[in-house]
C-alpha cells in the first residue's frame, strides 16, 4: 500500500488549499487536492477581486480559482472532485474517505473554508430562492427596480448594499449595532448612494411571506423593542460566516466559535495535520491570508515528511 500513500492531501480547493498544493508539489511532495464542488471556494462567487495583488483591473474570482488550479497542474497536482465523508487523522498514514474511495497520506492540509451564516428564522430555509438569498452577486438581478433588505454591517453586507443599490429601487440595511464594522473605503460610496436607508440597532425577527414568496420583514429595535414592518421583495443575509469544520469535529481542537485552534504555523493538535485559510482562528480572513497559510503549511508538511 506504500505506493498509494501520498505525501500531502489537501482537502478543499479554495485559494488556501491550492497555494498549499502548489508549494508542496514544488517541494517535490506527491500532492492531491480533493474538492467537492468547484475550484476557488467562496472566492469564486466574487465578481471582481480587487484586493489580490498583481491584477491592475482586478480579476474575476471564478477565473482566479481556475488559474490557481491550473497553476498546480503544471507541477503534477491532481484535483479529485468528490466530497470527503470522513477522516481518520490520527492514523499513520492518515485516511481520507469519500463515498467511493479511501485515500492515504502522510500529511493532511485542511482548507475547508467557511459558509454563510443563516438568520435562524423558522421559514428562512423554505423561502430560500423565493426571496431569501445569501449571495447578492448571484441573485441581485432578480430584484431589478424592487425593494430589498440586507441584514448585516460588515464588508459583505456593505458591498452587497452598494451592488444592489445600482439595481434596486430601494435598499434597506438592517444592522444590530449603531455603526458599521465595514472597511472605511466603502463609506464615501455609501454616503453617495441615495436609495440606501439604514435601520440601526435592529434585528430581523420575522420574515413575512405571501403566496410562498418574501413580502417583507419584521424588524425589532434593540434600543426600545419597538417593531417596524418593512415591505420588501427580497432579503439578503450577510451576517458573517461559519467555519466548515463538521468533518473534523472530535479530532481537531476548535475554539469557542468553531475555528481551528492553530497558530501562524498552521499546525493543529494532531502532528502532520494543518489548517489553512478561513477555517483557522485568525484576525483577518482574506484571499491573501489564506494563500499565505497555504505556503506556511506546506513548509511544515515537508518537514513532517522527511
Amino acid at each position: 500500500m506504500e505506493n498509494n500513500c501520498l505525501d500531502v492531501i489537501v482537502i478543499g480547493g479554495g485559494p488556501g488549499g491550492y497555494c498549499a498544493a502548489l508549494y508542496a508539489a514544488r517541494a517535490n511532495l506527491s500532492t492531491m487536492v480533493i474538492e467537492k464542488f468547484a475550484p476557488g471556494g467562496q472566492m469564486a462567487t466574487t465578481e471582481i477581486v480587487e484586493n489580490y495583488p498583481g491584477f491592475v483591473d482586478g480579476i474575476n474570482g471564478f477565473e482566479l480559482g481556475m488559474q490557481m488550479k491550473k497553476g498546480t497542474e503544471r507541477f503534477g497536482v491532481k484535483t479529485k472532485f468528490a466530497e470527503v465523508k470522513s477522516v481518520e487523522l490520527d492514523k499513520n498514514p492518515k485516511l481520507i474517505h469519500t463515498a467511493k474511495e479511501t485515500f492515504e497520506a502522510k500529511t493532511v492540509i485542511l482548507a475547508l473554508g467557511a459558509f454563510p451564516r443563516e438568520l435562524g428564522l423558522p421559514n428562512e430555509k423554505n423561502l430560500r430562492g423565493r426571496g431569501v438569498s445569501y449571495c447578492a452577486t448571484c441573485d441581485g438581478m432578480f430584484y431589478k427596480n424592487k425593494t430589498v433588505v440586507i441584514v448585516g454591517g460588515g464588508n459583505t453586507a456593505v458591498a452587497d448594499a452598494l451592488f444592489l443599490a445600482k439595481i434596486c429601487k430601494k435598499v434597506y440595511l438592517v444592522h444590530r449595532r449603531d455603526e458599521l464594522r465595514a472597511s472605511k473605503t466603502y463609506m464615501e460610496s455609501l454616503k453617495n448612494a441615495e436609495n440606501i436607508e439604514f435601520i440601526w440597532s435592529s434585528e430581523v425577527v420575522e420574515i413575512l411571506e405571501e403566496d410562498m414568496m418574501v413580502s417583507g420583514v419584521k424588524v425589532k429595535s434593540k434600543k426600545d423593542d419597538s417593531i417596524r414592518m418593512v415591505s420588501c421583495d427580497g432579503i439578503f443575509v450577510a451576517i458573517g460566516n461559519i467555519p466548515n469544520t463538521k468533518l473534523i469535529e472530535g479530532q481537531i481542537t476548535l475554539d469557542e466559535a468553531g475555528y481551528v485552534l492553530a497558530d501562524e504555523t498552521t499546525q493543529t493538535n494532531i502532528p502532520g495535520v494543518f489548517a489553512v485559510g478561513d477555517m483557522r482562528q485568525k484576525p483577518l480572513r482574506q484571499i491573501v491570508t489564506a494563500v499565505a497559510d497555504g505556503a506556511v503549511a506546506s513548509k511544515y508538511a515537508e518537514e513532517f515528511c522527511l
Binding site: 476557488g40 469564486a44 462567487t45 465578481e47 474570482g61 480559482g65 449571495c135 452577486t137 448571484c138 438581478m141
Partner: peptide
Amino acid sequence: ADWCMPCKM
C-alpha cells in the same frame, strides 16, 4: 445567467 458566479462553477 452569464453573470452568475456559482452558475459558472
